[in-house]
Write a protein that binds this DNA or RNA. Structure first.
Length: 391
RNA sequence: GGAGGGAUGUCCGAGUGGCCAAAGGAGGCGGGCUGUAAACUCGCUCGCGUAUGCGUACGGGGGUUCGAAUCCCUCUCCCUCCA
């Protein structure tokens, strides 16, 4: 059973919810150019592979001629999504939002087709609503419907407080869709309750409700928790090719299958074929595929050979810095001065723990002195090498 | 408005006057094993040029004491219950 790259099943590969597939099929068959909406939060401008999952699906739609509208939540950022009880929500200035938006654009366009992508800011329509207008919108919504969702109901049952603005959040988000009239809205699984409110709102405004597609969360490099910057298990889209490739190689085996499905366009059959190889070889294909898609084939090739040389063949990489001293220096100082370690104690620990080699020999005396005329290569920690020369 | 509970190192969490730079766990770092995977295993995990030493550190400030994370006062923040 081969994937047909044009089939709706391929477009929706791995989607965990589609409401509804029939409707989508109908709209696609009508040959109409569809508008796909994606809402983003301008408080977190650094994108990673987890964000790429959705962008990748959007890109497939674009390749079929459809259009993508990214809504920057300039206004809703001030309201705060009810999921997650963040202590204080930073209030962003217009300038910051501008800056974050720009950065977001750059990263998103690594994946999306710029000719088929529009960027909007919901502050443009939400920011100027009068109190009367807000009342009007709220009049058409029912609280019952909103607090049906599990997280609200749970909090009510447990007697935990729900702030009024949290209830308003889905109303504002829904209003975006009422204004934009998208055919499809995409998001993460956690957005489903908000999307349901949105569909309801669109119906009440006499529109065809948007189709909702949600994608599963990508697991992070620890193989356990979802990929997130705050868990420090992410791979940033801004990462350079070498690090991206290297980090992908450190991914546990188990999530590889998901990574192939969610982040590449490789067909189903081919994926199972790749996964039946030695896990390390499959992972190299995965790492290459993703790095090359985001950073270009050339960088990916050199990232791969860098990995093979330094890690697999244990060759010392040649892009090392050289540090030169004019008189005796000890090991501690030399390593500390490279600026890669935050304190001398940290370096001492590294040295006495056996993590430092000079020209291949482990040295665990931090007072080790380099005499004049010394010339050699120091390895400090797992993957940091530098040259040292004492005149 | 009233009653009560809480804030400890990156995180979780023990500790209720000296033996506390503070148990334990997680995470992280380094070694071994390996496929820079997992699992396993061993060591380290505030800073200071080398220290039975000094400095910082248990939400902020002040006090009691020879001595405070531990007691008292006060401030800030969080939570629960009643209204």
């Amino acid at each position: 059973m081969k994937d047909n790259l044009n089939s709706i099943d391929f477009l929706l590969r791995c989607a965990d919810t589609v409401v509804s597939k029939d409707e989508l099929q109908k709209r696609i068959s009508s040959k109409k150019k569809l508008n796909l909406k994606l809402g983003v939060d301008p408080t977190a401008p650094e994108l990673h592979l987890g964000h790429m999952v959705i962008l990748k699906v959007l890109r497939r739609f674009q390749d079929h001629g459809h259009n993508v509208q990214i809504v920057i939540g300039g206004f809703t950022a001030l309201v705060g999504d009810p999921s997650g009880k963040k202590t204080t929500r930073p209030v962003l200035s217009a300038v910051e939002i501008e800056k974050n938006t720009k950065r977001y654009k750059e990263q998103a366009l690594l994946i999306l087709d710029s000719r088929k992508t529009d960027f909007l800011n919901n502050n443009d329509w939400l920011g100027n609503l009068s109190a009367a207008e807000i009342l009007g919108i709220c009049q058409a919504r029912s609280l019952n419907r909103i607090i049906e969702r599990d997280d609200f109901r749970g909090r009510l049952n447990r007697g935990e407080s729900i702030r009024v603005h949290e209830v308003l959040y889905p109303i504002f988000q829904a209003h975006d869709s009422v204004v934009m009239c998208p055919d499809v809205e995409m998001g993460g699984t956690d957005q489903i309750p908000n999307f349901m409110t949105t569909r309801q709102a669109m119906k009440e405004s006499g529109q065809d409700p948007e189709i909702v597609i949600t994608m599963p969360l990508l697991v992070g490099l620890d193989g356990k928790k979802k990929m997130s910057k705050s868990y420090e298990n992410h791979i940033s889209l801004e990462e350079n090719a070498k690090d991206m490739y290297g980090k992908l190689m450190s991914l546990p085996d188990a999530p590889m299958k998901d990574y192939f499905h969610l982040l590449t366009d490789i067909e189903e059959l081919k994926i199972s074929e790749i996964l039946s190889m030695h896990p390390m070889d499959s992972k190299k294909i995965l790492a290459f595929e993703i790095t090359s898609f985001l950073k270009g084939e050339e960088s990916a090739l050199s990232a791969r050979s860098h990995f093979e040389n330094t890690i697999q063949k244990k060759t010392i990489p040649d892009d090392r810095k050289t540090f030169t001293y004019s008189s005796d220096v000890n090991l501690l100082d030399v390593i500390h001065k490279t600026g890669n370690f935050s304190s001398k104690n940290e370096v001492k620990r590294l040295i006495s723990g056996g993590g430092v080699k000079v020209d291949g020999d482990t040295i665990n005396d931090w007072q080790f002195i380099f005499k004049p005329k010394f010339k050699g290569t120091v390895k400090a920690g797992k993957r940091f090498w530098f040259d040292l020369e004492v005149l």
